[in-house]
Amino acid sequence: MDRDAEDGPGVPIGPWALLVFALAGLGLSAYLTTVHYAGVAPLCTTGGFVNCEAVTSSSYSVVPGTSIPVTVPGMIWFIVSGALAVVALRCTLGGHPEPRWLRSGHAVWAGLGMVSVLYFIWAEVVQLHELCEWCTGVHVLVFCSLLVTVARLQTGAPEEEA
């Protein structure tokens, strides 16, 4: 059975971690999307530097030119990331080699997510001077996903190993 090189024998930690990050991020994004459309304030700190309500009500909280909250693309990102993790897990647990594109594709996807996260951090820190703790949770999950995909990328796909 193929295993991730970084995982050690028996447990494909990388794909599992990516799946957990994706599910957690999906939960956070879904929560923020729900409170947006429900028109209620998220449960968070208000006033001062940490003020998620100000961030989620700001002009940076929607996709530019639309009224779609940015949490919707966020949900899509986590769904795709989770799906890629599931593909990796199915291959690993089924004893099949991962497709060649999987690790590099997931790394590129994570990189795109990280670029978006950096944009939102710029908006929060530089433009708004407010920080949203729920959003920060999402950002950390994307960051962790990026690191795991980079680690998996570096170890190489099992089918490519001698």
């Binding site: 002009s59 950096l118 530089v126 708004l128």
Partner: peptide
């Protein structure tokens, strides 16, 4: 980003940090 934010808030031309612009919704 943090340094930029700090420089922006300490700039003489921007003595008060701008508040977030309200969303279209």
């Amino acid at each position: 980003f943090i340094v930029l934010a700090d420089l922006g808030s300490s700039s003489a031309s921007a003595p008060i940090s701008p508040l977030p612009i309200a969303s279209d919704s």
